[in-house]
Design a protein around this nucleic acid. Structure first.
Length: 888
RNA sequence: GCCCGGGUGGCGGAAUGGCAGACGCGUCGGUCUCAAAAACCGAUACCGAAAGGCGUGUGGGUUCAAGUCCCACCCCGGGUACCA
């Protein structure tokens, strides 16, 4: 017997596999296709345990699918644009491409050392012009479809990375990459209009039956659809204000007053059949709680609301209001994110008219209103909204109860009250839940709340008077894709002084990144004259190239399509090929991409579908988000913390197969994992033990140590029978576990089969087995089954045994998955627990096919002492499990 | 605050409403050995000498039977956050 020596076997077989091309796709095959994909890595250099886990899970799935008879596409590539390469290049006075390609080579070697079965002929590298030219092409197509916009707005700016960031890349007010506090800046940037797809991106989450609930939930929250209404409030002209400073005031006929337009909004257009009026200034709000409109006692604008200065200019309120506007600019995103929510506000001296009842309400500016959600203005209903409530308390604004639960002490008094009789409450918090409307004119008595009859009635009334309508707001913002960095995909646009911003013509793609750039000396694309200077493709005049590059997430939004046709030089991919392979049957990656990459990819897929290039709606049919690998204290591993575990040392000691098996065995794939090396040796021992058993079953164990080690006399035939049963049971169990991604219990089941094999080998000498033809065949079948079951998990171990010990032709990875017979998995006799009132009192052996009556009788007999003198009320027989005898 | 997960031996973790703790690690005992390692065998939730009792975050409930279902609550992790 050759001892198990993974360090010799693994590199040798890796070469054999590479030479055989067995992991490459055969496009001609008529087998059903299956696309198994792991998220491609950033080429950061060394691989870590997170990679090992992610790619081991994917490899097991791919190898298993292949054994199940699928034509499997299992590619790998690199998400190769991005800041770390650029930063490293600056530090080391080298070029990002050099750093990147060196790291790719290193990672590729590590992946090969792990025995991952990738089709290396299909590798996609995002910084390769052959790939990124098609990213530019897609950009132009989005532009054609009106999904690209260049506009000025407040954006997230990371001072350390010296670039802007998308909303999704700001984590708790900090940069997702370097954790620097993010600043707000007003800049002109490029956007993908992902919000055009907001509804579909939300609604189609329901189709994704194979996605984890938590990921769908996160995306739904991020998209954040709110159904409500927009309501128009008319600004009272300054000269019409009669009761300055009193805050909330009683009914007014402001609507009929002559009003002058201020600079806040476009004048509201009046319908033709009305008497022409002077234009009025309208401020629109978005609300999900139009039912509470009668409780609106003030009105609030965000500090960034346009035109605030004009509103207060030259009034006694100007100083205070503008001070607040300035102060709120200084509050960083980090401070906001940390929940420092002390509200600050200032009165503008102005009033608006509440359309539902004509009341004048004072207009405030306050920092608790978000400028870029809804309209940046809100109607404040302190009795029904906690934020408004807190603000009202702080600034002594009235809190009028207009919605109550029926058990409120005020309810009996107000339940039929249409007019306002109570204008102040002593509540400790707002009442935001569903309730009954009171003091609300004709709506009194209706149920109020989100999507309530009261809300519907009020919106209907607003629509009839032309002061509001149903509308939907999203939390999702357009995707800011421009980056002021070199190492990315250049945006194919040209700025012409005469023609404006024009697209680079398709035939001029790719816009190549210049290689001769000295980043360390501070050179950027913008200062690189050779790159920036160009001629306008429309007028031929001198022009300048766009010098921003695209967010790296644009590269990862379609790479999985490219894998289906990676060498196409006429299109990003051939539609027929993409449609044949996609959607991806099984996608595997980290939960950290729950929103970012997975949302952007869904968006790209829908756009390409609308372009007629794809015939499906969603890119990833099944998604497995593997849990994070953390250190023993539960901390995430990172270079900065110095707690990164490198797999190389473990591979050098135990081999890749043991590392693969161990990381699968430690926990279910979707759970976080606290890394500990304690059990790794155990898995290595298991591979060794099983290795010896295979030799023994193959009749090649030179000494009969396993038999000799047996101490307990056992019935040799009984152990064989038990092993046959176990073999069928375990194949069924492992097959089932693989289907549900329960790799840890699959391995446990194989261990059980190995344990039963041990019992058998101890009870049957090698000599006696060799002498019996039936046993020789039986042994060979058991060995074959064990090797095949282990093949996806420990591919080198299995292939070595398959070819060298079992003497089979070809690779085990080309073999069919073992089948099983449920009939043979059944036991003849089963042990049942006998309970009395739910407590186990005895055990009985019964024939597996025994009639219920016989089982009951045997059970009663077994516990006759325990139930003596008691009345047996019931005896419940659960076949194959237990008998529960209920006594009084 | 809201939305997801999750709480089971010394540890990682198993359990379609049906014997809680599969499988492994660790520990203890044993075989082999001059000895040790390796290998192999056995034990191992807790309390108790035993009979037995008691056990899946807490408190209730449904059920012949609850880790699993229902109600209330506590704790931990993740996401999100003045989103009107």
């Amino acid at each position: 017997m050759k001892p198990y020596n993974p360090l010799e076997i693994e590199p040798r077989l890796q070469k054999v596999w590479a030479a055989s091309g067995q992991d490459c796709v055969d496009e001609e095959s008529d087998k059903p296709r299956r696309y198994v994909l792991e998220m491609f890595p950033y080429p950061s250099g060394d691989i870590h345990m997170g990679h090992v886990r992610n790619y081991t899970i994917g490899d097991v799935m791919a190898r298993y699918a292949k054994m199940c008879g699928f034509n499997v596409l299992h590619p790998m590539g690199w998400d190769a644009f991005g800041l770390p390469a650029e930063n490293a290049a600056i530090k080391n006075h080298t070029h990002p491409a050099k750093w990147t390609y060196e790291n790719i080579a290193k990672q590729k070697a590590s992946f090969q050392r792990m025995g991952f079965s990738y089709d290396w002929d299909r590798t996609v590298v995002a910084c390769d012009p052959e790939y990124y030219r098609w990213g530019q092409w897609i950009f132009l197509k989005l532009w054609e479809r009106g999904l690209v916009e260049r506009r000025n707005s407040p954006v997230n700016w990371c001072p350390d990375c010296a670039t802007v960031l998308a909303n999704e890349q700001v984590i708790e007010g900090k940069c997702w990459r370097c954790a620097s506090p993010v600043e707000k800046r007003d800049l002109t940037q490029w956007y993908f209009k992902i919000t055009d797809y907001a509804d579909e991106l939300l609604d189609d989450l329901e189709q994704l039956k194979g996605w984890p609930e938590r990921v769908k939930q996160q995306q739904a929250n991020w998209i954040g659809r709110s159904e409500g209404a927009s309501v128009d409030f008319v600004l009272v002209p300054s000269e019409k204000i009669s009761q300055v400073g009193e805050g909330f005031c009683g009914a007014s006929d402001g609507l009929d007053d002559e009003a002058k337009c201020t600079s806040l909004h476009e004048p509201k257009s009046e319908s033709a059949d009305e008497v022409p009026q002077k234009p009025e200034t309208v401020i629109t709000v978005f609300t999900t709680r139009a039912d509470t409109l009668f409780g609106c006692t003030f009105f609030v604008l965000a500090p960034e609301y346009p035109g605030i200065h004009e509103l207060v200019h030259g009034t006694p309120y100007e100083e205070e209001v503008m001070a607040l506007v300035e102060a709120s600019k200084q509050v960083s995103a980090v401070e906001r994110a940390q929940g420092n929510h002390e509200k600050h506000g200032a009165f503008t001296g102005r009033y608006v008219i509440n359309p539902i009842n004509g009341e004048q309400v004072p207009v405030w500016v306050a920092d608790y209103v978000v400028a870029d959600y809804g309209t940046g203005a809100v109607m404040a209903v302190p009795c029904g909204d906690q934020r408004d409530f807190e603000f009202a308390r702080k600034y002594h604004l009235p809190i009028v109860p207009i919605i109550l639960p029926e058990d409120d002490p005020l309810y009996p008094q107000l339940k039929d009250e249409q007019n306002r009789v109570v204008t102040e409450v002593d509540w400790e918090a707002a009442y935001a839940a569903e309730g009954i409307l009171v003091q609300s004119g004709p709506y009194t008595g209706l149920v109020g709340g989100k999507h309530s009859p009261g809300e519907e009635a009020v919106v209907k009334a607003l629509e009839e008077m032309g002061r509001g309508h149903r509308t939907v707001e999203f939390r999702l913002r357009d995707w800011l894709i421009s980056r002021q960095r070199y190492w990315g995909n250049p945006i194919p646009a040209i700025h012409c002084p005469t023609c404006g911003v024009v697209p680079v013509p398709e035939e001029d793609l790719p816009v190549l990144l210049p290689e001769n750039i000295d980043l360390a000396a501070g050179e950027t694309l913008a200062t690189h004259e050779e790159f920036a200077k160009c001629t306008c493709p429309v007028c031929g005049g001198p022009a300048r190239r766009e010098t921003d590059t695209m967010d790296t997430f644009t590269c990862s939004s379609w790479y999985y399509m490219r894998y289906t046709d990676p060498h196409n030089d006429r299109a990003p991919f051939d539609s027929a090929k993409a449609n044949a392979w996609m959607p991806v049957d099984q996608y595997i990656g980290g939960i950290e991409h729950a929103i970012l990459h997975l949302l952007y990819s869904r968006f790209f897929t829908k756009v390409l579908r609308d372009m007629g290039m794809l015939d499906f709606d969603e890119p990833f049919e099944n998604l497995l988000c593997q849990g994070m690998v953390k250190d023993e204290h539960g901390e995430t591993m990172s270079k900065s913390k110095g707690n990164v575990i490198a797999p190389e040392d473990m591979i050098a000691e135990y081999g890749a197969d043991a590392v693969r098996a161990y990381i699968l065995f430690m926990a279910p794939p979707d759970k976080d994992l606290l890394w500990s090396e304690d059990g790794l040796a155990g898995l290595y021992k298991f591979l060794n033990r099983l290795w010896r058993q295979i030799y023994d079953l193959a009749g090649q164990a030179e000494d009969d140590t396993l038999f000799q080690a047996g101490r307990k006399p056992a019935d040799a035939q009984a152990t064989q029978k038990a092993l046959l049963r176990q073999r069928h049971r375990v194949v069924g169990k492992v097959t089932d576990d693989f289907a549900r991604n329960n790799f840890n219990t699959a391995i446990a089941a194989i261990m059980e089969l190995s344990n039963t094999t041990g019992d058998y080998l101890r009870a049957n000498s090698a000599e006696s087995r060799a002498a019996n033809e039936d046993l020789r065949a039986f042994d060979a079948e058991i060995a074959e089954t064990l090797v095949k079951l282990m093949a996806p998990i420990a591919p080198h171990w299995a292939d070595e045994l398959w070819q060298s010990v079992l003497g089979r032709d070809g690779s085990v990875h080309e073999q069919p998955w073992p089948t099983w017979d449920p009939e043979l998995a059944k036991a003849d006799e089963v042990e049942l627990a006998v309970q009395v009132n739910g407590k186990v009192k005895a055990r009985i052996m019964v024939d597996a096919e025994a009639a219920e009556e016989d089982v009951r009788a045997q059970a009663l007999e077994a516990v006759s002492q325990a139930i003596e003198g008691k009345e047996v009320r019931k005896a419940i027989v659960v076949p194959g499990r237990l008998v529960n005898i209920v006594v009084g």
